[in-house]
């Protein structure tokens, strides 16, 4: 394990991804500190997901450097995968399996022992209060419950970093609040959270955020710093100023 305490959780240097002549992500550079909630903001097509896909090993970068949990994205992708959790905007659990079966499957392919799977299942059901539906198929559960479950399943193997790709798309404000409570809990226990989102109120919850525009990082800092820098009161206005400079 790479356990130097001072190493950043994610370190990216001039990371680039080209599709033909088009730069989806162009020379982005940033660091994410351990235990931080790092927000990745941007309009649709700004390159957020492409950047995240490169960091999680789903997409090969065209050039630049990046380490995740201390491992190189080019050479040590498999080691990265052991140390990260991932939850995508597309719902990622199996609808035709029950709550417990989903937990067992993902626990199993992350190499947890049967004992661990059993223990984690009980903890999870307890924490998310899923006693009554633990043996029901996921297809019958409300979206909010499923997303909370997906988040918890992504943390089953105690990863160092969790990547959340628009995790709260399509759920109501109350559920979103509950979801962010889970994120804070994870962050408190030392897990680094890397999250992309459209919701500007969620951006306020992050320790630091980066704004992407046309494949490049246009602004980076804590929400307060950014608001001060652009002389506005809310992240909403910051977003509008940066993402649509012509307006």
């Amino acid at each position: 394990m790479n356990n130097s305490e001072n190493r950043p959780a994610v370190k990216v240097n001039k990371l680039t991804r080209q599709f033909g002549d088009f730069y989806a992500v162009k020379e982005i550079t940033f660091e994410v500190n351990k235990g931080e909630i790092f927000g990745f903001l941007g309009a649709n097509g700004a390159g957020k997901s492409t950047a995240m896909r490169m960091l999680t090993g789903l997409l090969a970068p065209s050039s630049g450097e990046a380490t995740v949990a201390g491992y190189d994205v080019y050479k040590e992708a498999e080691k990265i995968k052991k140390n990260i959790g991932y939850m995508s905007q597309r719902f990622s659990l199996y609808e035709d399996l029950t709550v417990l079966e989903n937990i067992k499957f993902y626990g199993g392919i992350y190499g947890l022992s049967n004992q661990q799977i059993k223990q984690k299942s009980e903890e999870l059901v307890e924490k998310l209060n899923l006693h009554e539906v633990s043996k029901s198929l996921l297809s019958g559960l409300p979206l909010g419950w499923k997303q909370k479950l997906a988040f918890s399943v992504a943390l089953l193997h105690d990863p160092e970093i969790i990547f959340l790709d628009e995790p709260t798309g399509g759920v109501d404000p109350v559920t979103r609040r509950q979801f962010w409570k889970l994120i804070y809990e994870a962050s408190d226990s030392g897990i680094t959270v890397f999250v992309t989102t459209h919701y500007m109120d969620e951006a306020e919850y992050c320790n630091r955020i980066s704004m992407m525009v046309a494949g490049e990082i246009a602004a980076l800092g804590s929400p307060n710093e950014l608001k001060k820098q652009y002389g506005v009161d809310s992240m909403d206005e910051v977003f509008v100023k940066i993402a649509r400079p012509s307006n």
């Binding site: 090993g57 789903l58 990260i84 995508s88 597309r90 719902f91 990622s92 993902y106 392919i109």
Partner: peptide, 17 residues
């Protein structure tokens, strides 16, 4: 289609497995 393949691809599961 349902997007779960992406979830599997970020796990340490091996191709042959």
């Amino acid at each position: 289609e349902i997007g779960t393949i992406e979830q599997l691809n970020v796990t340490p599961i091996k191709n042959y497995e």
